[in-house]
Amino acid sequence: MNARTVDGDYFDGVHAKSHRVQLWIEGDALNLSGGDINRHEKLATLNLSEPLGATARTFSFSDGATVLVRDVGSLELMLAATPLASTLTDRAHKKKGWVFAAFAAFVGAVALGYSIGLPWATRQIAHTLSPKVLDAIGAGAIGVFDQAGFAPSKLPEARRAEITRSFSALKPPFGNAKAKQILFRSSPEHGPNAVALPDGTMVVTDELVAIAQNDQQIMGVLSHELGHVHYRHGAQNVISGAIIAGFLGAYLGDFSTVVTGAAATLAASHYSRDAEREADNYAIAMMQANAIPPRALAALLARMDHAYRAKKKAGEADQRNFEDYFSSHPGTAERIAHIEGSEKK
């Protein structure tokens, strides 16, 4: 019924030679004719390649023959009222407005996903992990530490036992987080620092013990680290790192695994401001619950910050400029003010 025709190249499926033909629709069948080629095939028995922009499309017959149509615009019109007409989603790829909308939706989804979805998902996943998994992550991490500028501690055994004992005597303010073990390591390179691994293992540097003016300050830092364990911040970092790596893999996949890996590492290399705040609040609650003034933690933070700046000034930190640029230790001053403020309440 439809008088419209389009040109095509017919291949019989046996020889590579092409035949010029004309195609038109008649009822529920496709007709083609040209030279000594004449075919009449039910549309339902044909396969038509997907529309992909202005890309030429191909009809495949059940016997292996094909027809190549270059003028996809005319083809679309010819097929308009047939079951082979493009679906709405097919057409969407071609319309600039749709592509733009998909693009906007994509950017919006990524932004929302990163700012809200990712933290939410990692928190959920982190809290459903069994202790066994956390142990595995922690065991992996401690090996990395021992290779990265952390040497065995030079503190006397008795001093180490004393700190461990004092901290185990403190009770958590809520929840049941526990320090699994406290490891001491000497690290002039990294200076005064303490780290909590996902399984509850804590690593404290000799330099931190040295810079503390009293044990209350050390208890404060350990409480802060226990906060990270309680909220499973470490596990969350590992999880969000994996999620980000997966996303970047899909997004940049074939671009460069190096870029992907580096970007994922950067995105997950430190705790967020919120995580630090949560751990600080936990430490405040824990210290108050055990009759230790939170200002001890604030004082130690100030001393650590001071030592860090002094070291940097001395040029020792020169080599680490690159890392420093990315490792945001956000607002130490703000944290100190917050901890001190908590005492006045």
Binding site: L52, A54, V99, F106
Partner: peptide
């Protein structure tokens, strides 16, 4: 005969659906 603009649409839709 492909174009960047055309492939952009295909790539984006693929990416969104894959994610």
């Amino acid at each position: 005969s492909g174009t960047g603009a055309e492939y952009f649409g295909i790539w984006l839709v693929n990416l969104v659906l894959t994610i």
